[in-house]
């Protein structure tokens, strides 16, 4: 039982969530070991919605080749609609590439892959099941009943929902539902954890706490994580490496590809206020087409301290 008062649980400081995480470290069952994910020249073109006058639509994704190392956290950044989620869905077998293929630990992905678990942007919990039953949905098939129950209880404790294990999704908040959704994905003992803007719908504070929770979970069981996000700060905080999807400046071909790839310096958890990260942030934002509003006024691009008058 968590020692903190339940209603304030939603606003618990990250330290206590982290406390819950570290407490259960000893009993964590070892799952799939982290997998390598290789994208080999992935391209994806969607069929037109109507067959009448059907000319092939331009590709959404093209020429995406990338290797994600086991245990690595890779953030996929990009503007809205650039195909980030499509790439993630292809990795999990929820969608298939038009050309190219994805290999997980060397074997190609065909259909929904049991080595992957997905955390969606929405919690997508079954409304008629309580939190425990929803998390249990993630257990791999053939898990012995007692072991499954223990694993579910452990995960619910890990995400700090022990006091709400018996509640239906509609009786808990959005942040709690998203944590339950994360626990469900972890219940699968995934070799690859695919997260599709998992914290995008949460309020700013809850999002920061969820990021810390994810870091704790990853530190405990270092699975490979592919994280789709449009939040540059989130990517910098969580990822080992960031790829930026988009169209290169001098390229008129349609379809997004990898335009930037950068390794984030420093070990996690990172200082949210670090100047180094702020500089990377500016570069990534520029890559996303956001004006930094600095150079025009003659401010040095490396300085992140605003000079007055602006």
């Amino acid at each position: 039982m968590p020692h903190r008062a339940a209603p304030h649980e939603a606003f618990a400081d990250p330290a206590s969530v982290r406390g819950a995480a570290s407490r259960s470290t000893a009993t964590t069952t070892t799952g799939n070991s982290a997998c390598t994910v290789e994208f080999e020249a992935i391209g994806r073109t969607f069929a037109p919605a109507t067959t009448r006058g059907a000319t092939a639509l331009p590709p959404v994704l093209r020429d995406i080749s990338l290797t994600v190392r086991p245990g690595e956290v890779l953030a996929i950044l990009g503007t809205s609609g650039c195909g980030k989620s499509t790439l993630l869905r292809i990795a999990g077998g929820l969608d298939s590439p038009t050309i190219g293929q994805v290999r997980i630990d060397g074997s190609p992905v065909a259909g929904i892959d049991p080595r992957c678990a997905v955390g969606f942007q929405e919690p997508r919990l079954l409304p008629w099941r309580n939190v425990t039953e929803n998390v249990a949905l993630g257990l791999p098939r053939g898990t012995p009943r007692a072991a499954g129950r223990a694993r579910v209880a452990e995960l619910i404790e890990l995400v700090g929902l022990a006091a709400f294990a018996g509640h239906r999704p509609q009786a808990i908040s959005g942040g709690m539902a998203q944590r339950a959704s994360l626990a469900r994905a972890l219940a699968r003992n995934p070799g690859v954890l695919l997260l599709d803007e998992p914290f995008g719908a949460l309020d700013a504070l809850t999002r920061l706490k969820m990021q810390d929770l994810l870091l704790d979970v990853h530190a405990q069981a270092p699975t490979t994580v592919l994280l789709v996000t449009h939040d540059v700060d989130e990517a910098l905080q969580l990822a080992d490496r960031i790829i930026l999807l988009g169209r290169p400046d001098n390229d008129t071909r349609a379809g997004a590809t990898i335009v930037q790839e950068l390794t984030v310096p420093g070990a996690r958890p990172r200082d949210r206020g670090s100047a180094e990260l702020a500089e990377l942030r500016g570069r990534l934002l520029a890559g996303l087409g956001i004006d930094r509003h600095g150079e025009a006024r003659g401010l040095a691009a490396t300085s992140t301290i605003p000079a007055f008058p602006y």
Binding site: A6, P7, H8, A10, F11, E122, P123, L125, P127, F164, H167, P169, Q170, A171, I172, S173, G174, G175, M176, A177, A201, L202, D203, T206
Partner: peptide, 23 residues
């Protein structure tokens, strides 16, 4: 506590209620 929340909430609301609401 959360049992006092109305059981007749529309199903979609669970998605949109931020933490603050339960609080």
């Amino acid at each position: 506590v959360p049992r006092t929340l109305p059981r007749t909430l529309p199903r979609t609301s669970a998605r949109t209620v931020p933490d603050a609401t339960a609080f």
